[in-house]
Amino acid sequence: MSWFKKPKQKITSQKRELPPDVWEKCDGCGEILYSGRLAENDHVCPTCGHHFRIDALTYAGLLLDEGFEEEFDTGLRSADPLGFVDSKSYRDRIEAASEEVGPEDAIRTGSGRVDGRQVKLGAMEFRFIGGSMGSVVGEKIRRLAERAVDERDPLIIVSASGGARMQEGIYSLMQMAKTSAALDRVADAGLPFLSILTHPTTGGVTASYAMLGDVILAEPGALIGFAGPRVIRETIRQDLPEGFQRSEFLLEHGMVDQIVPRGELKERVSVLLGHMC
């Protein structure tokens, strides 16, 4: 008599184990993507357009004809000026990041060509302590800017950073003044500075060189702001509006010139340099 009774079937959701390096899940739409295909698409989801995080050298490869033809100041290391220790010592954090990401700290700088035109490029490395700016990042940017002035090349910086590196205390704050002073020299020399903002660019980096571009481009959907959303929420005790501090919000408020999908970035940079060089 139980012919109408539906056999109970246990609903199981099996977690799909993704073999590393072969498949990646999109944070935007949840689509499972083949890594090779993703790389061909500049690490942008073909379904929803979500921009995956890419590292500094990948940006160099994306923007420059042959990547970095020369990389600068790879031997600079933080000196831990305060002997900073919280739950972990700063030295240990540096060491762990160096092993995982490479010892070049949170920015790679070098020279190369964009459609044959010589440029000086800096690209930040978010995976190195959240792309935070300490003395090494500041000094690498200063030297890069000086080289741009000496060789009369345009300057491009791709930012991705949580802000100042608090383990370097007041020195990290002073890097904001230092990098801005370096950019003032570039401006005096009549050379263009192009700032490209990627996810995320916040804090002391936004409040210094990142917002000082003659032209500022942003990747779609990037979080860009002075204060982080959590700090703002805690301060004002209200929910933040939809899309707050995203690239599209900044474009609407007049803070960036254009939002450029990664696949069009090089071409746009090339045209812009043509107008300004």
Partner: peptide, 22 residues
């Protein structure tokens, strides 16, 4: 750190001053 401050470019305003003062 507030909504209006971000909308009107807190980061840009500070960055500009650093450059101008330099």
């Amino acid at each position: 750190p507030g909504i209006g401050a971000e909308e009107r470019g807190q980061a840009e305003a500070i960055a500009r001053n650093l450059l101008v003062m330099a």
